[in-house]
Amino acid sequence: MLVISRKKGESLLIGDDIEITVSKIEDGTVKLSISAPKSVKILRKELYKEVESENKSAVIKDMNILKKFKK
């Protein structure tokens, strides 16, 4: 893991086509601006984990339904 310090207005690059800029720092919150190709998915981690959990639950429910038909 890379840990890097940035000030307001400073950026970092990921590869050739993703730029993350610190837009605002206020009351313990940092706002980031992300410039990336439309083909790159950008999700907040907590949202990603929630979707992942919901998908796992749906698979388990589907498996239980399929088991009933298998009998």
Rank of each mutant, 00 (worst) to 15 (best):
D27S: 12
L2R: 13
N64F: 01
K45F: 10
S57K: 14
I14Y: 13
I18V: 15
K67I: 05
V30M: 11
A36W: 00
S23F: 13
I25R: 08
S39A: 11
K71P: 08
D62E: 05
I20H: 10
S39K: 11
N55P: 00
S57N: 14
T21P: 02
R6E: 00
L32M: 10
L2E: 15
I18C: 10
K67Y: 03
I18G: 03
F69Y: 12
L66G: 01
I18W: 07
V59R: 03
T29G: 04
K41Y: 15
S53A: 14
I60N: 01
N55S: 08
K68L: 07
S53P: 01
S39L: 05
S33Y: 08
V22N: 06
E10S: 06
I60L: 08
I34K: 02
L66D: 13
A36E: 01
V40L: 06
E19T: 09
V40H: 02
I14T: 04
L32W: 13
K70M: 09
L66V: 07
K68R: 14
R6Y: 01
I42V: 15
I34C: 04
K61H: 04
I25C: 08
D27I: 03
N64S: 04
L13P: 01
G15V: 07
E10V: 04
L13T: 11
I42P: 02
K70S: 04
V40F: 06
S23Y: 10
F69I: 01
P37H: 07
D17V: 00
K61Y: 07
D17Y: 02
F69Q: 03
I4P: 00
F69E: 09
Y48A: 08
E50V: 06
N55Y: 12
D17L: 01
D62W: 00
D16P: 06
I18Q: 05
A58Q: 05
K8I: 15
G28V: 14
I34P: 04
K68Q: 13
A36V: 02
S53H: 13
L12M: 10
K8A: 15
R6Q: 05
L43S: 09
K61S: 05
I20M: 14
I65C: 01
D27R: 11
E19M: 09
S11C: 14
A36Y: 00
S35T: 11
I25F: 11
E10Y: 06
F69T: 01
R44C: 05
I65K: 15
L12E: 08
K49I: 15
K38M: 06
L32P: 04
I4V: 11
S33A: 14
V51K: 07
V30Q: 09
L43P: 00
I65W: 02
I60M: 01
K67Q: 05
N55V: 05
P37F: 07
S57Y: 10
N55Q: 11
P37K: 04
V3R: 12
D16A: 07
D62A: 06
L66W: 04
K7V: 09
K45I: 14
E10W: 07
K8Q: 15
E26A: 08
K70Q: 09
I42M: 05
E50I: 09
I18P: 02
S23C: 10
S39G: 03
K68A: 12
G28S: 13
